[in-house]
């Protein structure tokens, strides 16, 4: 089930709190590997969630590093389209 979630944080020094895995260079779907308790994404993301979109970008053709950079560049608000 595809849903849209919006994460917020106070500072770009704070981590979002999830670990990203996959990408076209790994021949697998970008997804959430794990989630750290008490971080901005806790309760919104769960391990195994497939990440289908970052902001306005579809992740269909993104390598791991491209997705990584996109998330890094998102500032203090991060919009994700995920499949739970």
């Amino acid at each position: 089930m595809q849903t849209y979630i919006q994460l917020q944080r106070n500072s770009t020094m704070d981590p979002w709190g999830f670990r990203l895995q996959g990408g076209t260079d790994f021949n697998s779907q970008l997804s959430v590997k794990k989630v750290t308790e008490g971080t901005p994404c806790y309760g919104q993301l769960t391990p195994g969630d497939a990440i289908l979109g970052i902001g306005q970008n579809s992740t269909d053709s993104l390598t791991h590093m491209q997705a990584h950079d996109l998330i890094k560049q998102s500032g203090n608000v991060l919009q994700l389209s995920v499949c739970k």
Partner: peptide, 8 residues
Amino acid sequence: ALYGESDL
């Protein structure tokens, strides 16, 4: 990165 993962 060794496992193709990144903490964000």
